[in-house]
């Protein structure tokens, strides 16, 4: 396997990590606000804040890691995406900035401030929508290179059924992943009233998630038949994804093994996300950047991979420590520490 494949796999893995942890975070913000306006905040907000407080910053790093990594491994992507994404990228920055700092402001300064909670909840849905634009334009047909540089074709983007189905998929997946996680976490905390509530959310958001996945597939076949064909060739990955979806839904429905249910959710998205990524190759941005044309020089690629391994040796034990202290420490989860 060439180092460009190692590079893209590593980056894709981190983007997948971001997808999971950020979805939990984004969805939790939305649910916290929703619970507040439906006067159910006393049931779940304590639970959400106990999980989010120690980890919100870590979530953000997964994202930074991905975009720094992709510019490092594939410097051409800085050129094309950088030129094209000035406006959506800046909007995403503003949303992320509002969300991250207002979380801290609310949590450490103004407990239960209505405005902060609203912004926190709203940005939680807008960020996935704005970030998913990047995946949309990678399919090609949305940007144009002329002698003056690269421009994003907003008309095409806003009228494309494909781009809207991706946005829709991003939002419902966030709510689905998050509610599945909170179900597990509430059960872990022995918090029955919270469990009943978030379990309802989880069951509710499962159907739009699977429907949105299907419509996105159909829209892709219209927009980029070539990519669609490659995805069909990897049918088994998407099949596994659906199978794990069924398992997760079944376990939550019978109300047992919530931990396994969440692991099944993670596999569901793992196979869907990697199936999507693998069928996208060799293009990083169709038709301008392929995995071999855009890759950095060999020395840098090897150095980055080396540093990456060293970095993981540092990060994995630290992350395990973090999770043991806050995620899997039953006493902490129950609020006794």
């Amino acid at each position: 396997m060439g180092y460009e494949y190692i590079g893209i796999t590593v980056l894709w893995l981190f983007l997948y990590g971001y997808l999971i942890v950020a979805s939990i975070d984004f969805g939790a913000g939305f649910f916290a606000y929703y619970a507040k306006i439906t006067k159910k905040d006393h049931i779940i907000n304590q639970l959400i804040s106990r999980y989010l407080s120690p980890v919100w910053e870590v979530t953000n790093v997964f994202f930074v890691f991905f975009f720094v990594g992709i510019v490092g491994f594939f410097p051409d992507s800085a050129y094309y995406y950088g030129q094209a994404l000035l406006i959506p990228g800046s909007i995403a920055i503003v949303l992320i900035a509002i969300r991250g700092s207002f979380y801290a402001f609310e949590n450490y300064g103004f407990k239960n401030n209505h405005l902060y909670m609203f912004l926190y909840g709203a940005t939680g849905l807008l960020i996935p929508a704005s970030l998913s634009t990047t995946l949309t334009i990678s399919e090609g047909g949305f940007i144009e290179e002329t002698a003056n540089g690269v421009t994003l074709l907003y008309g095409e983007l806003f009228t494309s059924p494909y781009s809207w189905s991706v946005v829709f998929l991003a939002i419902v997946s966030v709510l689905y992943i998050s509610s599945m996680f909170l179900t597990y976490y509430a059960n872990r905390a022995n918090d029955h009233s919270a469990l009943a509530l978030v379990r309802k959310y989880a069951l509710f958001w499962s159907s739009p998630t699977i429907i949105a996945s299907m419509t996105t597939f159909i829209a892709l076949s219209q927009h980029n038949p070539e990519h669609y064909q490659k995805a069909i060739d990897l049918w088994w990955m998407f099949g596994l994804s659906v199978a794990f979806f069924m398992i997760a839904l079944f376990l939550v429905y019978i109300g047992k093994y919530y931990g396994w249910a969440f692991i099944a959710v993670m596999f569901q998205f793992f196979f869907a996300f990697f199936g999507y990524g693998a069928s996208h190759l060799p293009y990083i941005l169709q038709p301008y950047i392929t995995i071999s044309s855009g890759v950095t020089n060999e020395t840098m690629a090897i150095t980055l991979i080396t540093v990456f391994i060293a970095g993981l040796l540092l990060l994995v034990p630290s992350l395990i420590l973090l999770m043991r202290l806050f995620l899997f420490d039953a006493e902490y989860v129950k609020g006794k520490k």
């Binding site: 720094v68 510019v71 490092g72 150095t303």
Partner: peptide
Amino acid sequence: ALPLFMEVFAF
């Protein structure tokens, strides 16, 4: 790319 990448690790 190397120091940028390492900065993220440190962070």
